[in-house]
Design a binder for these strands. Sequence first.
DNA 1: GATGTTTATGCAAGCGCTTGCGTAAACGGT
DNA 2: ACCGTTTACGCAAGCGCTTGCATAAACATC
Lengths: 355, 355
Amino acid sequence: MSTTPTKGLLPDKRLHKGADLKSLAIQLGLSQSTVSRALRGHHAIPESTRRRVEAAAEAAGYRPNARARSLAIGRAETIGLVFPLERLQLPETNFVDVLAGISTVVTQRNYSLLLSPFRDDEVAVLGKLASSKSVDGVIITRPLVVDPRIALLNQLGLTFVLHGRTEVQEPYSFVDTDNDASFERLTGLLLDYGHRDIVAVNGLSHFRYAAARAAAFHRAFSARGLEAPTEAVEFVSMTEATGFETAMRHLAAPVRPTAFVCGSVFQARGVYRAAAACGLTVGRDLSVVAHDDGVRGCQATDLTPALTATTTPISASGEGLAGMLIDLVEGRIKGPVGRILPFDLILRDSVHVVR
Amino acid sequence: MSTTPTKGLLPDKRLHKGADLKSLAIQLGLSQSTVSRALRGHHAIPESTRRRVEAAAEAAGYRPNARARSLAIGRAETIGLVFPLERLQLPETNFVDVLAGISTVVTQRNYSLLLSPFRDDEVAVLGKLASSKSVDGVIITRPLVVDPRIALLNQLGLTFVLHGRTEVQEPYSFVDTDNDASFERLTGLLLDYGHRDIVAVNGLSHFRYAAARAAAFHRAFSARGLEAPTEAVEFVSMTEATGFETAMRHLAAPVRPTAFVCGSVFQARGVYRAAAACGLTVGRDLSVVAHDDGVRGCQATDLTPALTATTTPISASGEGLAGMLIDLVEGRIKGPVGRILPFDLILRDSVHVVR
DNA sequence: GATGTTTATGCAAGCGCTTGCGTAAACGGT
DNA sequence: ACCGTTTACGCAAGCGCTTGCATAAACATC
């Protein structure tokens, strides 16, 4: 008879309440060490024993107590994702895709994912995560131009990976999309179509990506021996409303821009609305292009005319982040490392030629 | 001098690498027991000592090792959220709001949130969570009409809370929105406006909420001494496309329905499109109402005409779930308990009167 | 001053696992 | 038959915390 009482039919072995190592060892007439090693596929354990142990473990529905194991091996086999709670509350679904990518890889690699949202005090959350040792590493997001978290985390000795880049001396690992090139390409496209009075509807200037995009915007001009008009770059939030307002303001100016390059499809949608409000037809009287972060429910193709935009694999960046972080904590790779994901430019119908 | 070497300026105490209990105890000239108890605010520790210990802990940036603590107290102070990965990938942002609510409360109550997505084998995930003891309890979602997970979890002895309800004998705790009443109310509204040929665009029939809504739909008829037309309830997925198809099919039938009651704004949007395709004006030739789960980027007010719909506090259900689960695992309440969140009906312009 | 009661603190045994080191048995070579 | 070498496994010491049970000092009681 088995030591685990069988209540009724057990359609699945996983239904057993898990026993512990000790009971399993006793039941097998082996020591805990041997059982543990057999289960971990240690060498020095003959194939025959391993099989026997594995069978028994399977039958008993045994799984090592994760907390005890963590304590013993000194790793949690868990990574944390630290983010402002609002990223789950705003319309910006972008983050959710990243999250999907992260959790895919984390699960694949047999890790756990700890969600650590914060309202204001990210530093406190990071400190807590580090000192309570509940995770082996963290993913942080939305870097500022010069981001203080890099120094903090290095000092805390907490392994981390940044989603994006930042302009600091300290070493850090990251995964980012190629914002810079994307924006340069979009701007270049407009310039090559003859546009000169171009307005960049950019993100908020304290975020590094926005700063980078502004620089890229200007680079596109200089690469062609041109100079961007003054006050051509607007640093505003990533919403439809700001896209609308910004566009309205510029369309009412004495020198009306002929094109807008936007940081997101949301903003582009606002620009479309402004165009309509001004009696302009996008793709004929006004050109609009954008960087498309693949936001759900707000696709470049949903607009009329369909929006010419660059596109990046959002959930792939989540996968990249998680994979890199796990490699880092397991010591499979040595940081700092960085990875920049490419973008695609998809030409649609929102750009017209200026003669 | 302090035992923690100070590297440069420390703008924040949280920057210290956390020491452990032992060092802290030695440094204070106390035993680990006393320090531990002082930190936990145990009685039998005089105020003076407590202060001294707390100050030292704060200064050293001490936080108990979560894994060791878990092991010792036998609880993980962590709850799990088990869900199909696709819920993060589909346009359905509903789930994200629930998640936001959950993480808010989890954080507030000083717990951690473990995300456990699965691709196919939810049973395996639950079994693993249970036997590896990595969480104190789990939140499960999307109940079937008769959901086998209830029995499974009860057998595994894993505390859980269900988001929704199911028709099983076994005890379970849950938080749900008042689907039944909501659908009955919507249907009743249409009936009271004189509609009789009403089509319910419902969710897939294996989900309990869809079954409940179908029943509610019929209840509304019988409450008025009426009978629903045959094949009035369509069990389809919650997308714009199925809303469109379903509506097109019915609008092409010999007896054309005068109203649709939809399970979500997505479906309603599809119905609107179908109406347009058939040259019908919603709110004049055709009535549409829906249950609004508050999906972002697809609001009842975004449609033209604005959609009459019921609305429920989605993130509140997340908060309810997390709060209930934690109360349960801490033994503050005894299960099973259930909570049904109310809905509001908001009248807009998508309903017309049939004489 | 002997006895009972608080009050303040420490000892040490876990929690369930991993792992360095030790050892007995089996093996191989000469 | 003797002595390395594997081979297969067990012992026991942790990992860092909590907590039941002691203990010692201080105080009150008669």
